[in-house]
């Protein structure tokens, strides 16, 4: 019962003044895939995420998720359609506890209305109990339950990254966009993260698009990889194909003598 989404990006372009941050990019992501996006700084990777999640409106082109066009919808509509993301610079609800962070993210599936919430109808209690159980299950499944009542800003860096992913998972996403999840992690933590990303793909049945600079991580877990450079797509394929692509080696990995 996979609900993982297929993503089709068609001719996507974003222009900032005279700069083409994303230049006619097309790519296909299969359902349930872990899809890597790599490229030097400024290659347009995060802009791509912002285009998918509706923070930017593309100058040209469109994004289809499961065949439906999401381009032009507002960010919260896109998020409620099951497209979750994490941020390059962690954006948690800092003053809230881990548990509250995850519970808040369940908001789309909570069905009581304003009045029912303020009057505490039985529906309120039913729904609240349900999402609290769900939040607990998510935090337990990724080993954060031990810190569930701590303020999220007080967590160590690695756990904050994990919590951000947990918050995204609480939205029952079909597509999860991870923006440099291993940034600032040491080798040990990065290795753990690889297993963790695979675990959430299998357990939560999501398609994952992953921006990363840690080549080991990308090569290890990605089913397919796209390489960006200066807003253009340089190459795409499996890890081996990318590693052996002379263009990529020249532009990104460095020329091997």
């Amino acid at each position: 019962m996979s609900n993982a989404a297929a993503v089709s990006i068609q001719n996507l372009t974003k222009q900032f003044g005279g700069i083409l941050a994303v230049d006619h990019i097309s790519m296909e992501v299969k359902p349930g895939e872990i899809h890597g996006v790599i490229g030097p700084n400024g290659a347009g990777k995060t802009t791509l995420f912002n285009l998918i999640t509706g923070i930017y409106t593309p100058t040209e082109g469109q994004v289809l998720v499961d065949g439906e066009r999401i381009t032009g919808l507002s960010p919260h509509t896109i998020a409620n359609a099951g497209i979750a993301r994490t941020f390059q610079n962690i954006r948690l609800f800092k003053e809230l506890s881990c548990f509250e962070n995850v519970v808040t993210a369940c908001q789309n599936e909570v069905k009581y209305n304003f009045l029912q919430g303020c009057l505490r109808t039985p529906k309120y209690y039913r729904e609240e109990r349900r999402i609290q159980k769900k939040a607990q299950a998510i935090l337990e499944s990724i080993d954060l339950w031990a810190v569930h009542d701590q303020k999220s800003k007080n967590l160590p860096y690695g756990q904050q990254r994990k919590l951000e992913i947990a918050r995204a998972l609480a939205m029952d996403p079909k597509l999860l966009l991870l923006d440099e999840p291993a940034a600032g992690m040491n080798e040990d933590e990065t290795n753990q993260l690889a297993g963790f990303i695979r675990q959430i793909r299998d357990q939560y049945q999501v398609t994952i698009i992953l921006i990363e600079h840690h080549m080991d991580l990308i090569m290890e877990i990605c089913d397919a990889i796209d390489v960006f450079n200066f807003g253009k797509k340089l190459a795409s394929g499996t890890a081996e194909a990318i590693q052996n692509n002379p263009e990529v080696i020249e532009a990104y990995l460095g020329v091997d003598d």
Binding site: T53, I55, H76, F87, F93
Partner: peptide, 8 residues
């Protein structure tokens, strides 16, 4: 930004 990203 994060609030928007979780669908608010």
């Amino acid at each position: 930004v994060a609030a928007r990203a979780i669908g608010i």
